[in-house]
């Protein structure tokens, strides 16, 4: 089974460790993982800024890059949503390529959804002790019905879930919204951080790096240097040294 890894532009740039965690989880589950190294971005920043043309071009690029894969998997609900929902239903609705994009949509999955609902994994390599609280990112939750899947993975790793209030409420990231309307975005992040704190968990986990950067950025600005901010893939995958070895510089795992 050939699984194409769509690593997402944010993970590529800022947190490659999430990409390697994804890689490890897929390989451990028996997948042959392919990483088309010409991939850039699903086009969502342009799409949500009204730049329709470029988002169509990037969609065609993704289509071509993953043509030979049986599945496409991304460690992000919002990028998956872009490919699975917005490519076929909006950008190429009624276009000659609509069929191709429907086929792409059918084989594209968010990571936790893929592991739980397609591969039916029962165990994960990672080990975690203690409680985490989980933030449901909007696109995954509302466009893809990703809700329990990441929680199951965390539980397989041994984590307890201490749910926060309003875990389904938007953290305020919203892509370029976080910069264009920074003040409102910050207030939303502030509300999220307050709920994280009251959950009692010392680790906040999510499935979209954008949200995680937003949450971590706000926690740190508030002076909280200890709460760990993690992607569920990092916890589920556990130790990555076997995978990406010595070429990674030593401090890169300590961003949390």
């Amino acid at each position: 089974m050939k699984v194409g890894l769509f690593v997402t532009c944010l993970v590529d740039l800022a947190r490659p460790s999430i990409g390697f965690a994804t890689l490890k989880l897929l390989q451990d589950a028996g997948c042959e993982v392919i990483y088309p190294d010409t991939q850039t971005c699903c086009g969502q920043p342009g799409y949500n800024s009204g730049a329709r043309e470029v988002s169509r071009e990037l969609a065609l690029k993704v289509l071509k890059e993953f043509r030979d894969c049986d599945y496409v998997v991304a460690p992000s609900g919002s990028c998956t949503g872009q490919i699975k929902v917005h490519y076929p239903n909006d950008l190429f609705r009624g276009a000659p390529e609509q069929r191709d994009f429907e086929a792409l949509a059918a084989k594209t999955f968010e990571l936790s959804d893929f592991l739980i609902n397609v591969l039916n994994v029962q165990t994960v390599p990672g080990k975690f002790e203690g409680a985490v609280t989980y933030h449901d990112s909007c696109s995954g939750l509302r466009e893809l019905s990703v809700k329990m899947q990441p929680r199951y993975l965390l539980q397989m790793a041994g984590a307890e879930i201490a749910e926060m209030a309003d875990c389904e409420k938007c953290c305020g990231f919203g892509g370029t919204f976080s910069i264009k309307l920074g003040e409102i975005s910050t207030r939303m992040a502030e509300n999220k951080c307050a709920n994280i704190r009251s959950s009692g968990a010392s680790t906040i986990v999510g499935g979209d790096l954008g949200c995680l950067l937003n949450i971590e950025g706000r926690l740190r600005r508030e002076g909280d240097m200890t709460t760990q901010v993690k992607h569920f893939a990092e916890i589920a995958a556990g130790d990555l040294s076997s995978l990406d070895g010595s070429e990674r510089n030593a401090n890169t795992n300590e961003h949390g």
Partner: peptide, 8 residues
């Protein structure tokens, strides 16, 4: 209103 966690 927020820090930006640095890339790896």
């Amino acid at each position: 209103g927020r820090d930006m966690p640095a890339p790896e």
